[in-house]
Amino acid sequence: MKKLAVFLLILTLALTLFACVGSAALTENDLAIRIGSFTVTPKTTMDDVRAALGEADEYAEAISCVYEGMDKTFTYGDVTFYTYPDGETDRLMEVYCTVGDVATAKGVTFGATVAQIEAAYGTGYTRSGKLLTYALPASSEDMEPASLYFVLENDCVAAIAMTAEHRAE
């Protein structure tokens, strides 16, 4: 009887621990991406980006299909910042990295496996296409949530991207 009780206690503890690892609540800081010595979080503004990285190597803009104003991209080497217009301000929508000295807040880099991602961020992700995405809850129905996502090639990380919470329109 005692053995059974101990076994059940251990089982309960193990299941609880497993559940915590699988659904650990992430914070905005967990979604951050370090690019060299500059860290991008969902709260980063394009002014922060310019102050840290200077003028972009490439710049492009076009009238937005969805927002009122211009969608823009600012490219620094293999890192691209996507913005959307919000009045006079270009708000960060996404940063997308394919090569270079890039790591997430929890140390995931290019070439990491799904198992390594899970060890860092847990199993509370969604998979669609080649994407593995960890998203925070959106602050309202009108917003697309902040997220960290990995583009996988042969189940290894080929690109790392972070989406800032932004208007869904």
Partner: peptide, 26 residues
């Protein structure tokens, strides 16, 4: 997510295929 630097201009079989693949992947 717009990609203003890579506007297709006129659609061809080739850019339709590459755009469809990229959209499906990402």
């Amino acid at each position: 997510r717009a990609n203003p630097g890579e506007s297709v201009g006129i659609f061809t079989d080739e850019n339709t295929i590459s755009l469809a693949q990229e959209t499906l992947d990402k």
